[in-house]
Design a protein around this nucleic acid. Structure first.
Length: 295
RNA sequence: AGGGGUGUAGCUCAGUUGGUAGAGCAAUGGUCUCCAAAACCAUGUGCCCAAGGUUCAAGUCCUUGUACCCCUG
């Protein structure tokens, strides 16, 4: 049965580890097309801050799942997996090798593990309602709401993690079933025969690369990019504006941060982000780790 | 040169009337099934600048030295 699964290649790793160029190199070697797995590069206009590959860097290699969502749209993992799988099928149908490349672990895993999310859209109103409830009655009270309807999630989710508690409540409201049960049902088999490469490098080196890359982003006009996106009436609360590099510049433009503080914050946030990515990928035993820069 | 201040965890600092030390940030580890570049959890032994002294006991008091900062000439 294993043999029937189509073969794909994945390239993962923390931010600034060199995934983009590595994937492009692979694509050229094996006649592949790249399917980006990045929660922020999906947005249009956000080029500098998301370190999106330039046309020159792509060097003729076809890229998918990049530059197709307006920044004021709140895209979702479910949307992503559907589109990504379609692209993968299409690439395979044309006899080429799909190369999934990106640092958003949830997006990549959900896509290749065939995880099915509930079909109901996110309930914005209900989320607001619950957020308000938490503010008025406390996080613990919100968490207690889970106790009777989904004891497993109640025990699994920390009371402070309001975001997750809300999602569990939302799933119950939409389906009438505990999220913990639905999660088990939706746990799919891997749909591809995937070979996953992880780029790793010494922590110090990685952090240094991150810091330098942020300086380069500033030189390349990150501030101007953020300004021009804001001028399109993109709300500051949009998911796109939560991206590292964007939210900090927004604060600078609002006078909340000095430019220097904003830059430091971007570097710091990026380092934290890289660490979380490493944690996410570390537990995936399928990943073949390669040290790109030696050491 | 004289006067004053500071010197405690990688950084910024707490440390009550003397009982061998604690916060924030950083760092590290972790969770993750639609806000995921998000949200959240866990982990704090450091010659308390040095050397003497007082004391049963000193980061905490005294003396000297030392580094840095400020003020006056």
């Amino acid at each position: 049965m294993e043999d029937l699964k189509p073969k794909i290649i994945c390239v993962v790793g923390p931010t600034a580890s060199g995934k983009t160029s590595y994937a492009i190199k692979l694509a050229k070697e094996c006649d592949g097309e790249i399917v980006s797995c990045d929660s922020m590069q999906i947005y249009k206009y956000m080029n500098i801050g998301t370190a999106k590959p330039t046309l020159e860097e792509m060097d003729g290699v076809v890229h998918h799942m990049i530059n197709f969502v307006e920044p004021w749209v709140n895209y979702s993992v479910a949307d992503f997996t559907t589109s990504a799988r379609m692209h993968i099928s299409d690439i395979l149908a044309r006899g080429k090798m799909p190369i999934l490349c990106g640092g958003t672990g949830l997006y990549l895993d959900s896509t290749i593990k065939n995880i099915k999310f509930i079909s109901e859209d996110t309930d914005v109103e209900y989320r607001k309602e619950l957020t308000l409830f938490a503010m008025e009655n406390g996080k613990e009270s919100l968490h207690e709401l889970l106790k009777d309807i989904d004891i497993v999630s109640y025990e699994k989710i920390h009371p402070n993690n309001v975001q997750r508690v809300i999602r569990a409540l939302e799933v119950y409201k939409a389906t009438g079933k505990p999220k913990s049960e639905i999660d088990i049902l939706s746990r799919g088999e891997e749909i591809y025969d995937s070979e996953i490469f992880g780029l790793s490098l010494q922590r110090e080196v990685l952090y240094d690369r991150i810091n330098k890359r942020v300086d380069i982003m500033m030189d390349n006009g990150l501030v101007e990019e953020v300004k021009s996106i804001l001028s399109m009436e993109v709300p500051k609360t949009a998911t796109a504006m939560q991206a590292i590099g964007y939210k900090e510049i927004v604060r600078y433009l609002d006078g909340e941060y000095s430019l220097e503080k904003a830059v430091d914050a971007i570097k710091q946030e990026s380092r934290h982000y890289a660490k979380r990515q490493i944690t996410w990928f570390r537990r995936n035993e399928k990943i073949k780790w390669i040290n790109v820069l030696g050491k």
